[in-house]
Design a protein around this nucleic acid. Structure first.
Lengths: 184, 184
DNA sequence: CCAAAGATACCATCTGGTTGGTATCTTTCA
DNA sequence: TGAAAGATACCAACCAGATGGTATCTTTGG
C-alpha cells in the first residue's frame, strides 16, 4: 500500500480528477454545455473546491486543452525520434500518434476539445498555432503535397471514428496511409 | 411587383429565418450553447413565436440537421448523375460536394452540426445511418480501399478548413484527391 | 499561527418551456 | 358574395430550475 497514513487533502490528485472528469463531461455535453457543478460533483468536490483550483470556467477548459496538446506533442516527438527515415518523419509521427489516440482513453478528451475548437476561437487559434509551428519546424522534410494529403486523411479517419461509433480503421488503410509518406 | 396586397404574416419565411440564424448561432456557440432567445432575437421573432414553429429546442436542431443533410444528398446525387465514369462515382461526388461546401455559405451550418454530432448521439446516429446507406447503395462502385482513403482525406481537408481559418485547399490537393478515385 | 484547501451559502442572470391572449389567414356555408 | 367559424401565427409575461461566480466560513498541513 502507498502509506498507512491517510492524507486528508491531496490537492494535486484533486486537480487531476477535476481535469479528467472535466474532459469527460466535455465530450458528453460539449464545452458550452459543460457545467462547473457537474464537474465538481463527479470529481467528488464541491463547486467551491473546483473554483479554488480553477478560478473560472475558461481557466478549467484551457488547462484541459493545454494538457492534451502537451501530451500529444510529446508523443509525436517520441515517434519522430524513433524514425530513421528523414522524409515525411513528422507526418508519419502525426499519423501514428493520431491513430494511436483512437485506441486509448484520451480520444474522448480530444474529440471534445477539437470539436469545441470550431466554436471557440481561442482554442481554434491555439491548435492552428501549434500545427503551424510544427510544419514550419519540419518544412524541409514534410511539405510535400502527398504528405499534406496523408495528414488530412489521418484527420478524416479520426473524425470518422468519432462519428461512426465502432470499427477502428483497418490495418490495410493504415498501411496505405503510411505508404503515402514514403518517397515513391 | 408580386402584389400590391401586403401580406402581414409569412410563416414560411419566418421558419426559414429561424433555421438560418439557428444554424449560424450553432457555429458561434455550439449546439449545447445555443439559446432559443438568441435565435428568436436574431430572426426577429419572439421566443414564443419560435416555439410555435419548433416546439422544443431539439425539434429546432433536428430540423436544421435534416435540411442540411437533404441538401447535401441532393448535391451528391446531382454530381453522380453528371459523372460518366462508374468506378468511384459516389466517392468523387462526395469529395466534390464536400469541397464545394467550403466555398459556400452552408459550411458554417455544417461545421456546427457535424461537430455537435460528436456529443449528440441522436445526430451522430443520423449521420452514420446516412453514410452507411449511401455506401451500401454504391458498394459495387465505391468500396475499394483507395476510395475510402480518399473520402477520409476529403473529410480531413474539410476539418482543417474549419480549424485553420483561412487558406482553402489548393487545386493541386484537390486533383491529387480525385486522382485517387480513378482506377490506376 | 498562517496559508492553502475545501465547504457552505448565496446571488444575479439566463435557460427551456408554458400560459393566455391577440392578430391574421383560410375554410365553410348560406 | 360575404360573414361567421375555426385554425394558424405570433406575442408578452411568467415559471422553475440551472448557471457561473462571489463571499464567507471551516478544516488541514506545515
Amino acid at each position: 500500500m502507498a502509506s498507512a497514513y491517510e492524507r486528508k487533502k491531496e490537492p494535486a490528485l484533486v486537480r487531476r480528477r477535476l481535469l479528467e472528469h472535466g474532459a469527460r463531461l466535455c465530450v458528453e455535453h460539449g464545452v458550452a454545455g459543460l457545467s462547473l457543478q457537474a464537474v465538481a460533483d463527479t470529481a467528488g468536490v464541491t463547486k467551491g473546491g473546483l473554483l479554488h483550483h480553477f478560478p473560472t470556467k475558461q481557466a478549467l477548459v484551457d488547462a484541459i486543452f493545454d494538457e492534451l496538446l502537451q501530451s500529444f506533442e510529446g508523443r509525436v516527438r517520441q515517434l519522430m525520434d524513433a524514425d530513421p527515415e528523414r522524409f515525411g518523419r513528422f507526418t508519419r509521427a502525426y499519423i501514428n500518434a493520431t491513430l494511436e489516440l483512437l485506441g486509448g482513453e484520451e480520444v474522448v478528451q480530444w474529440s471534445a476539445l477539437m470539436m469545441s475548437s470550431v466554436t471557440e476561437p481561442r482554442l481554434k487559434q491555439r491548435w492552428a498555432d501549434w500545427l503551424d509551428g510544427q510544419l514550419k519546424q519540419n518544412k524541409q522534410t514534410d511539405s510535400a503535397p502527398a504528405l499534406e494529403l496523408a495528414r488530412h486523411a489521418a484527420d478524416g479517419i479520426w473524425l470518422a471514428a468519432l462519428l461512426g461509433q465502432g470499427a477502428p480503421p483497418s490495418k490495410a488503410l493504415r498501411q496505405a496511409l503510411l505508404g503515402l509518406t514514403r518517397k515513391s
